[in-house]
Design a protein around this nucleic acid. Sequence first.
DNA 1: TGAATATGTTCCCGATCGGGAATATTTCAG
DNA 2: CTGAAATATTCCCGATCGGGAACATATTCA
Lengths: 89, 89
Amino acid sequence: MAPCVGLSMASPEPGSGSIGEFVRRRRKANRLSQRDLGELAGVGTRFVSELERGKPTLRMDAVNKVLLVFGKVLSYTEAPREVDLEAGT
Amino acid sequence: MAPCVGLSMASPEPGSGSIGEFVRRRRKANRLSQRDLGELAGVGTRFVSELERGKPTLRMDAVNKVLLVFGKVLSYTEAPREVDLEAGT
DNA sequence: TGAATATGTTCCCGATCGGGAATATTTCAG
DNA sequence: CTGAAATATTCCCGATCGGGAACATATTCA
């Protein structure tokens, strides 16, 4: 396995878009296939696919393995507004 | 279940400390027991405990349910350095 | 247009999450 | 110090994740 992907530019703010979008963007920017990324991160190809497509029930440890390839880790931010509890109104 | 906890101050940056620390801080600031928070979020008491103590294999959906109580959601940030791949040296 | 590659979907299945409740600890006020 | 409340740990167990591989599409490019 490669030591670490060269990576080009890094996103300034913590969450421009969903995690999945970020991963896909980065993966493509680095010309990696899902399989490649999966191997680099130590997760399966299917997982990479699910992650990029926004599956919500993924486990944090696996997600972090992928994010780490791009020098990121899971964190938290302000919720997108209105999305608090279902106690809307 | 209560509509939404009042919440006091909100952390400016997206990840001052671990997610678990954040949750615990917030929970206490709002005088909630783990059981209360669990009910508010719709997760079990044990889960809240594990989350606050930093268990890494938790599922994102459940974590988000808890974070949402405090108006947050999972996101990603710069990794703490050195923590990239295991390709150290 | 057709082949090659990448991505998405499905299946099998062991591993483990997460709820719930009981029990052991820890924490804290009086 | 003492007892109550809160938190941590353990157990049972259904539900589902995640790896791996096969197969179906979708993309890409010459």
